[in-house]
Simulated assay, not measured.
Amino acid sequence: MGFSVVLSILSAYDVNNMHELIINSIDDLLWLRLSQIVFPNQDLMSLNKLQKLVYNEGSANRSSFNEKPIQFAMCLLLTGQFETAIDLLNQIEQFRCHAVHIGIFLHESRLLSTASKSNSPMLITTSTVEDPLKSINYQRLLTSYTEKCRYDTELWQIVNYFYLLKQIRQKDGENCFIESLAVLLLKLDENDLDNLLERLFGMNRQGVPTEARILDHLDIDTSVVTANVGLYLEKHGNLELAAILYDRAKKTRQACSIYNRLLSEAIR
Rank of each mutant, 00 (worst) to 15 (best):
L184D: 09
N137M: 01
S25V: 01
V54A: 00
P121H: 10
E211F: 07
S116M: 08
V100F: 03
A227Q: 09
N24M: 05
T126F: 00
C97E: 09
K235N: 04
Q36W: 02
G80F: 01
D221V: 09
L245Y: 01
V229L: 04
K148F: 07
K166W: 01
P132D: 04
S257M: 15
R62K: 14
A227C: 06
Y232E: 10
L29V: 05
E174C: 15
L200E: 12
Y55M: 11
E147H: 13
N61C: 02
L186P: 04
S8V: 04
L77D: 10
N191T: 11
L188Q: 15
F3D: 11
Y55T: 08
R205F: 00
H101V: 08
L77S: 06
S63C: 00
R33A: 01
S118Q: 13
I124P: 01
Y163W: 03
K117V: 10
Y259D: 06
T226E: 02
A242Y: 01
I23T: 07
I9Y: 06
I9E: 11
W31H: 08
T252R: 12
I92C: 01
A60K: 12
N204K: 05
D14I: 01
E57C: 07
R205V: 02
Q139S: 13
I244D: 03
H101Y: 11
R213H: 08
D28N: 11
S264C: 11
A227G: 04
L106V: 01
D43E: 05
S144P: 03
K68S: 05
D131H: 10
Q254E: 09
V224M: 09
Q71W: 03
S135P: 12
V38I: 07
P132A: 06
C256E: 14
D131T: 15
Q206R: 07
K117L: 05
L196P: 01
M45R: 13
L89E: 12
L218A: 08
L142W: 03
V5Y: 04
R253S: 07
C75R: 08
L155G: 14
Y13T: 15
V159L: 14
S4G: 03
V15L: 08
F201P: 00
S257N: 15
L245C: 07
D221I: 09
E93D: 14
D14Y: 06
H98Y: 13
V15S: 14
C97G: 07
L181D: 15
V225R: 14
H101W: 13
N48H: 05
C75F: 03
L218Y: 15
D216Q: 12
R33Q: 02
G80D: 01
L184A: 10
K134N: 03
N16I: 11
N195Q: 10
V6D: 04
N17Q: 04
G80M: 00
D247F: 02
E179F: 09
L262H: 07
N195V: 07
F177Q: 10
